[in-house]
Write a protein that binds this DNA or RNA. Structure first.
Length: 239
DNA sequence: AACTTTCCCAACCGCACGGCT
DNA sequence: AAGCCGTGCGGTTGGGAAAGT
């Protein structure tokens, strides 16, 4: 009752991430009330699992990943969560979408005509509708369209973060300067760890926040520091 | 430029399952 | 055993973006 639906705003994302970094998710059903979000627990869980988790891998699916998906789908069928478990950093939803929008069509198009020999599915570059071998299946614009929430900058890191807020809250524009502000400050170990790829922190800095620069085992201390800074800048409630 | 169609992805929905009482 | 609750899974869809006319 009175719960919000539809796309998540940057503000909601920050509240959710900050809350989970401070408290863990615990009971998903109770989380939105405790965090002050007008969302159901299910929606919070989905947003976290599919988008906000620090170990989410963003960007192109590699040929290897696509072939793995095709192979596993042959073995397992539509068991997306099992397939996702074999592809670190990829979510079941993402894999399901890639399958339904690209791989299924590709396989369909490459179905051998009657009387022709079968060949191993996914074993040949010629199976790909994208004729450029070793090139990513998705364009950079497609990838950037994935970035509706935190980590919105594309691989070039030059685009301003788009704040979607239907309530028209007075949110600061979250462009590169926002993140550099978040990373600034002597008390932020994240800054040096992040930029220097400090192995102790198990973090490596790539060219933009939200890209695959964060290792799968990116530690929670980094996220804690990062969103503590964000809290200060956005004046979010402290938990 | 304006309009229509197609594509794609984030998010929703309904259901199944396991744990607990 | 039955009922409730929380969680996870897979199918589906709304709507924005891109492409086509």
């Amino acid at each position: 009752m009175g719960l919000k639906k539809g796309p998540w705003t940057a503000e909601e994302d920050l509240i959710l991430i900050t809350y989970i970094n401070h408290n863990g998710h615990g009971n998903w059903r109770a989380l939105p009330k405790r965090a002050g979000l007008l969302r159901c627990g299910k929606s919070c869980r989905l947003r976290w699992m599919n988008y906000l988790r620090p170990d989410i891998k963003r960007g192109n699916f590699t040929m290897e990943e696509e072939e793995t998906i095709i192979k596993l789908h042959q073995e397992l069928g539509n068991r997306w969560s099992v397939i996702a478990a074999r592809l670190p950093g990829r979510t079941d939803n993402e894999i399901k979408n890639v399958w339904n929008t690209h791989l299924k069509k590709r396989l369909h198009n490459s179905q051998p005509k009657p009387g022709t020999h079968l060949h191993a599915i996914g074993s040949s570059e010629s199976d790909h509708t994208n004729s450029e071998s070793n090139s990513p299946l998705y364009s950079s614009s497609e990838i950037s369209s994935l970035s509706g929430g935190v980590g919105g900058a594309d691989a070039g890191g030059s685009e301003a973060y788009m704040v979607m807020d239907p309530l028209d809250h007075d949110l600061p524009e979250m462009d590169e300067s926002f993140w550099s502000e978040v990373f600034s400050g002597d008390d932020s170990s994240a800054t040096s760890d992040f930029s220097a790829g400090n192995s102790d922190s198990q973090l490596q800095f790539s060219d933009s926040f939200g890209s695959s620069g964060l290792s799968a085992e990116g530690d929670m201390e980094f996220w804690y520091n990062l969103f503590s800074r964000a809290e200060d800048l956005l004046e979010l409630p402290q938990f």
